[in-house]
Design a protein around this nucleic acid. Structure first.
Lengths: 242, 242
DNA sequence: ACCTGAACACCGTTCAAGT
DNA sequence: ACCTGAACACCGTTCAAGT
């Protein structure tokens, strides 16, 4: 059912494998050069920036490319493959920060960089969260994490678990962060922009949800930066000593 | 755009608000009693058990209820509301474990219970992850978490952050857990059931991904129970002292 | 080699109309 | 009060056919 690509086909964003050449039909095609996978992926990312992941549609993508939707399936097996390529393209922007030889600082820097990249495209975090970690650049990220932890002297088992925990934390944090922003934006249209969501929590019945009511502003009004660091610190502090 | 229910409408799974009564048409309707929200929600959960969240469709749900899809919209504003009701119905199964007066043990027990409930329906974790925490039972869960942390002596700020971190951890853990199971099941059809996914990682180019290759079995072959506990312990250990 | 036309089998939702 | 018919505006994907 689920398509786990074979290892040798770890997909590259570049050209499709059967060398695309200008042939007898090229001159018939005149001005329009044929679609490439790379072009498809960049256009798909632009479209996602405008419409969000749920608005990214094979048909709409075809339109922006001046092509019929059926054509996309010559370049890509299905939508899932396209999404994988997009996810990998996003991860290709990650510049693994070198520097400190403290493993902790290396991990923190890597997490911040990963989060930064997740913020460069609308719904990037959601895309990464709903897509499988295949693709060379995503694998690179995982590799870097693992290597850092192994270097630090953690056991193989702790390394594997900590790495999964850590990457998932960042991804899901940004997913929630994005969602909160979207909700806030939706509310901001009417009334003053005092936090309407926190108002919603504050208006719950106090006798049933005393803590929820009391902490309403803290639960919603974000200070995202600090919250992100809090989670990261908690995770790193909680690890067994290497 | 996004519909945050007004606080006074915190939705109850029970009846719709305008008292449903047998009236002059009741006898015309003979055997079939009218749909109720409660019935819709239980049927929707059953359907999700069979087809997964992505197979849960307003049209299919209508079919299993012996009704046309348009009818559902008399009972429910839209699909999102139905999903919220389902999420809340699932959370209503949570029996907050009492007992220990150690906050840490209380939190651990609560997390295990929450995870247990997430496992009682296919894709429950995914549903909870993609749905907003409105609905009385979900709010109860949050309230319990917050109260426990406040009781333990954490500051309001740490309580808020730790609670979000903790609930999200459990939910997302189970999402990944479910996904891994689905993938494994998809692979299991062919070949022996030796872990094909770990084989995929193991077959990556060693020179590029040495750690990934070395840790392949640990990254995929789960021992989910232990991994869940590892993450929980890490989070709890990492918290500042109350 | 690459693209189109046309279809298939679906979606969520609305709304006038029925009972 | 509750349900249906019929439509609207979409989806992803396939496949024979065109150039």
């Amino acid at each position: 059912m689920i398509d786990y690509p074979k290892p040798d086909s770890v997909s590259i964003v570049e050209q499709s494998s059967h060398l695309p050449r200008f042939d007898e039909w090229a001159e018939t095609n005149e001005g329009r050069q044929p679609l490439t996978r790379a072009h498809m992926v960049t256009s798909a990312l632009e479209l996602m920036d405008e419409t969000g992941l749920e608005g990214l549609t094979m048909r709409r993508l075809a339109d922006t490319l001046g092509v019929k939707s059926a054509s996309l399936y010559w370049h890509v097996r299905d939508k899932e493959e396209l999404l994988n390529l997009m996810a990998d393209a996003i991860c290709s922007e990650i510049r693994p920060p070198e520097g400190s030889d403290d493993w902790r600082q290396r991990l923190e820097a890597l997490a911040r960089e990963y989060r930064r990249v997740l913020k460069t495209h609308r719904d990037a975090a959601l895309l990464l969260a709903t897509t499988l970690p295949v693709g060379p650049y995503r694998l690179r990220l995982a590799e870097t994490h693992l290597a850092t932890l192994l270097d630090a002297g953690f056991t193989a088992e702790v390394t594997a678990r900590a790495s999964l925990l850590f990457v998932d934390y960042v991804t899901n944090f940004v997913v929630e962060e994005d969602r909160a922003e979207a909700i806030a934006a939706a509310f901001q249209t009417d009334s003053d922009d005092a936090d309407a969501v926190s108002g919603w929590f504050a208006a719950l019945p106090v006798d049933q949800y005393p803590s929820l009511v009391a902490l309403a502003p803290l639960l919603t009004n974000p200070n995202t930066e600090a919250r992100f660091e809090f989670g990261m610190t908690t995770l790193l502090n909680g690890l067994p000593t290497p």
